[in-house]
Amino acid sequence: MEACRILLADDEKALTDYLAPILERAGFAVTVVHDGETALRYVLEKHPDLIVLDLLMPGLDGRQVCRQLRAAGDWTPVIMLTRVNTLVDKVSSLEEGADDYLCKPFDSHELVARIRAVLRRRRGPANQPPLIKASRLRSGDLTLDRRTRRVYRRGQPLELTPKALALLEYLMLHPDEVLTRDRLLDAVWGWDYPVATRAVDVRIAEIRQALEDDPEHPSFIETIIGIGYRFLASVEPLEDTR
C-alpha cells in the first residue's frame, strides 16, 4: 500500500526538522514547506492526502491557506497547529474548514494519532466536504442542527443545556473516535484541569438521559473505561434544505 502523503507547513524550522522524521517513522511520506504561499501551491498541484498547517506563518497564514483551499473547492483534510490556544482560534480554525486542531506545544504521538483519526474519518468518497462543514448532522433518528443549536430525536426537539449540546456536537463530529475526557474538556469547555473531568461525565449523563441511551447497551455514546467516550453510531452530513 502506498504511504499517505502529508504536507507539513510550518515556519519553525527547528520544529519541522524533528517532526518530519517522526511522521516518516510513523509511515507517512512527508513534504515540508515553510510558508503559506508555497503550501497553497503545493496542495493545488500535488494533492497530498492531508495537510498539517501552522496557524501563524509569515505571508499567508494557516487560516488564509485553509480558506483559499476551501473556496477553490479543495477539501484536503487539514490539521491546524495553533500557538494561541484561545477558544476563538479553535472555533475559527474549525470554521475555516480545518478538520482538527492541535495546540502547541504538543506531543508528537498525539499528532500522529490525530492524523490517523482524520484520515480514517475522511475515508470514503474522496475530496468530499467534511462533517465539520455541514450545518446539520444526522445519526439514525437523531438530528443536530448546528446553526439553530437544537437537537431532534424522531423529529421531536430534545431539551439540552448549551454545554451538553456542544459536547454532543463534538462527539458527532468525531464519530468512532475514542475521545479522552481531557480532550473533550479542552475542546468544549476551553479548559482542562485534571480534577474537572467529572464535568464531562455530568454532561454525558445529561445527553444519555435526553437520548434515552442506556450506558450498558449504548446505541450512541459508549464509555471507554478509564479513558473517555466514543460516539458509536455513524454520522452523515445533511444538505441544507434552505
Binding site: 494561541v84 490556544n85 484561545t86 477558544l87 448549551p162 476551553g190 482542562d192 484541569y193
Partner: peptide, 25 residues
C-alpha cells in the same frame, strides 16, 4: 518539558477564562 508545558497551558487558560463566555444557568 511536561512541567513547562503544563505551566504555559495553565497560564493561558487563566487568561482565557478572563474573557471567554461563561454559562448563565
Amino acid at each position: 518539558v511536561e512541567r513547562l508545558s503544563r505551566l504555559v497551558a495553565h497560564l493561558r487558560k487563566l487568561a482565557e477564562l478572563e474573557e471567554q463566555a461563561i454559562e448563565r444557568l
